[in-house]
Amino acid sequence: EQRVMALYDFQARSPREVTMKKGDVLTLLSSINKDWWKVEAADHQGIVPAVYVRRLAH
Rank of each mutant, 00 (worst) to 15 (best):
Y52L: 10
S31L: 09
K38C: 14
W37Q: 05
A57K: 15
Y8S: 11
H58W: 11
L7I: 11
D35K: 12
H44G: 14
A50S: 13
E17T: 03
R54H: 15
V48G: 00
L7M: 12
G46M: 00
Q45V: 13
M5A: 06
K21V: 02
M5S: 09
P15F: 08
P15R: 07
I32W: 15
V18P: 04
P49Q: 01
H58D: 15
R54N: 05
L7T: 03
E17I: 00
K38R: 12
V18E: 02
W36Y: 12
M20W: 05
E17A: 05
D9M: 01
D24F: 10
V25E: 13
R3S: 03
Y52M: 12
A42D: 13
A12G: 03
V48M: 06
V18K: 08
H44K: 15
S30N: 12
Q2W: 01
D24K: 10
M20R: 00
P15V: 06
K22Q: 15
K22G: 03
S14T: 12
V25P: 03
R16A: 14
T27A: 00
A57N: 13
H58I: 14
L26V: 03
H44C: 12
M5C: 07
A57Q: 14
K22I: 01
V48W: 02
Q45H: 15
T19W: 00
A6I: 07
W36Q: 08
S14M: 00
Y52C: 15
N33V: 02
E40S: 11
D9L: 06
Y8R: 15
S30V: 00
A6S: 07
A6V: 01
A6T: 04
I47H: 11
K38T: 15
F10I: 09
S14F: 07
A12F: 05
A12C: 03
L7P: 03
V4E: 01
T19I: 05
P15D: 14
Q2E: 13
D35S: 13
V51K: 15
T19L: 09
L26G: 05
Q11I: 08
E17R: 03
M5F: 05
S14N: 13
V51I: 14
A50G: 00
S31C: 11
A41N: 12
D9P: 04
R54T: 12
F10K: 07
D35W: 03
S30W: 02
S14K: 02
K34W: 00
L28G: 03
K21P: 06
V51D: 14
V18D: 03
T27G: 00
N33T: 05
A12S: 02
N33R: 03
V25I: 12
K21S: 01
A42T: 07
V53E: 09
L28C: 15
M20L: 10
L56W: 00
A57R: 12
V18F: 09
R54S: 06
L26Y: 11
V39G: 04
D9G: 05
H44S: 13
R13F: 06
L56M: 12
K34H: 14
S30D: 13
S30H: 06
E17M: 13
T27S: 02
L56Y: 11
K38S: 10
E17Y: 13
Q45K: 13
L26F: 10
F10E: 05
Q2T: 06
V4I: 08
S30P: 01
A6P: 01
G46P: 04
D35Y: 10
V25H: 08
W37E: 02
A50E: 04
N33G: 08
V4R: 01
K21D: 11
S31P: 12
T27W: 00
Y52A: 13
R54M: 07
M20V: 11
I32T: 15
I47E: 03
Q11C: 09
A6M: 01
A41W: 06
A6L: 01
H44T: 12
H44Q: 14
G23S: 12
E40D: 09
D24Q: 15
G46R: 06
F10L: 05
L7E: 04
V53C: 13
A42M: 08
F10W: 15
V25C: 11
V4P: 00
Y52H: 09
E17G: 02
W37V: 15
S31A: 13
A50T: 09
D24Y: 02
A57Y: 15
E40W: 05
E1L: 07
D43P: 06
V51Y: 10
L7W: 04
A42P: 11
A6K: 03
A12R: 09
A41V: 05
K22C: 06
F10R: 07
A57E: 15
V4L: 06
P49T: 07
W37S: 00
W37G: 06
F10M: 00
K22L: 07
A12I: 08
E40L: 05
A12Q: 07
V4G: 00
V53H: 05
D9T: 01
I47Y: 15
N33Q: 07
L7C: 04
M5L: 13
L26D: 06
S30K: 09
A6H: 07
S31Q: 14
V53S: 02
V51Q: 14
A57T: 12
Q2V: 09
Y52D: 06
K34E: 07
E17F: 06
K34G: 08
H58S: 13
V53A: 03
D35A: 06
W36K: 05
Q2H: 12
A50R: 13
W37D: 05
I47L: 13
T19R: 03
R13H: 09
V39R: 01
E40K: 14
S31I: 15
D35E: 09
R13N: 02
S30L: 00
V51R: 15
L29W: 12
Y52K: 07
Y52P: 12
A57P: 14
E40A: 14
L26C: 12
A41T: 13
W36H: 09
D24E: 07
I47F: 15
V48Q: 05
L26Q: 08
L29G: 08
A50V: 02
V51A: 15
T19E: 03
R3W: 11
K38M: 13
D35M: 07
L56C: 11
D35Q: 04
P49V: 02
D24V: 08
Q45S: 13
M20P: 02
L7G: 06
E1G: 08
N33A: 03
G46Y: 01
W36V: 06
R16S: 15
T27Q: 10
L29M: 06
S14P: 02
V39A: 00
M5D: 04
R54C: 05
V48K: 06
V53I: 04
L28Q: 02
A42S: 11
V25G: 04
E17C: 01
Q45T: 15
D24G: 01
A42H: 12
N33L: 04
W37C: 09
P15M: 00
L56P: 08
V39Q: 02
T27N: 10
E40V: 06
R13P: 05
S31V: 15
